[in-house]
Design a protein around this nucleic acid. Sequence first.
DNA 1: TCCTTAAATGAATGACATTCATTTAGTGGC
DNA 2: GCCACTAAATGAATGTCATTCATTTAAGGA
Lengths: 229, 229
Amino acid sequence: MPAATSATADSPRPEAKPRRRAGRPAAAVLDQDGITSGALRLIRKSGYDGFTMAALARTLNVAPSALYNHVSSKRDVLVLVQDHLTSFVDVSTFEKEPWDQAVRDWAWSYREVFSKHTPLIPVIAVLPVTDAPKTLAMYEAVSAGFSRAGFPQERIVSAIVALESFIFGSAYDVTAPADIFDSGSMAASTPNFTAAVDSLAEQGFERPADVAFSLGLEALIAGFGALRT
Amino acid sequence: MPAATSATADSPRPEAKPRRRAGRPAAAVLDQDGITSGALRLIRKSGYDGFTMAALARTLNVAPSALYNHVSSKRDVLVLVQDHLTSFVDVSTFEKEPWDQAVRDWAWSYREVFSKHTPLIPVIAVLPVTDAPKTLAMYEAVSAGFSRAGFPQERIVSAIVALESFIFGSAYDVTAPADIFDSGSMAASTPNFTAAVDSLAEQGFERPADVAFSLGLEALIAGFGALRT
DNA sequence: TCCTTAAATGAATGACATTCATTTAGTGGC
DNA sequence: GCCACTAAATGAATGTCATTCATTTAAGGA
């Protein structure tokens, strides 16, 4: 009962890239692009908790085992998703703005994208760039921007890594509960910290995580900017 | 067959804190401290992959279900572990060194501890401090140091959050494979990035992650230092 | 000695990811 | 047009987990 073949018109599934090797047979229904966009759709609807291989297969009208003809593990799917998401990070700014503003735009955009996908961070952080072409393309655009701005060649990668580390860490903050620093019954024994927390609260910022991100990012931009020749 | 009661002298299990409520009965064998140190021992031996509730129970000579009399989930155990680890982070430096050196020492120590425990980062990053007393104590020591150094009250928390974000992100880098930036066959299409990577490699640093960490940390310290009055 | 109760037990349960022997259906060679 | 080949889909296992629950065990206060 090959019901999977019929594209039951309930969802606009964007199947692309035949991906077949020269003169060899093939069917269709499923490929890496389809899996990627199905995964992204599923994650948006059900979050990372609801993101199971079975649920992904259901999204794609396919048996779970069929997925393994195109990816070798769930982690593989996460890598595909992360690489796809990276293409939403804005690097165009490096071709339009001065270095400092470009870094600022890029960093905010990068954090924005992955703050909704923090479960990917442990995957991205240690992923060889070879496995993620769009991510590599992002690095290329950013490196070019740094280079053009007179950044010393041998420090470009370190600077990008440092910024990225800060961005990934900050992405988690965005999702933290608002009362994360409420010391509760232990307030009495932590006077300095409690005072600091209260003092920040009094400022009434809507997104405290944005304040911390801005503070750190500006320090990094200022510090790195001084390295340019 | 209560073989669990006999402390089969094969491992020095540091059971402490009777933790019993006034005049109520109790046995022993297991408590949160014992679970925490057993978990840490297991993680050190088998890593986070080998860290299962069943393996933890075996480490403690107990049935898996027994654990649930003391913790309500595996996540709970991770929280206990993370809080325990935080007590290894060196904050003594805030009472001995000038502010900038203290921040430097603290940050390196913090990253060092958690670079061996990156699977805890997603847990820590969004954990209310109420659930982690030793972590709260660390924040208190750091806040006090910032305060004493003339840091504006209402920016202390944001500065700490920014530093912590950078530290967590950087902890992942330590564990990344050495060839993570090897662009392989795509090198030709990413000339700027490839050149930057090669240029860094030529420097021959033993731990490139340390270079990036130092670069970012010094920028943050310099930037934040300027805020002091 | 008995009663109460925290803590331990071991046998389910239910999610999962992943594997495998089969089946299905295009495609290129004839 | 037919065949043989082979990528891709199927569905029925498998094995690993965390977690639950009905029972049992034993210490301490009465």
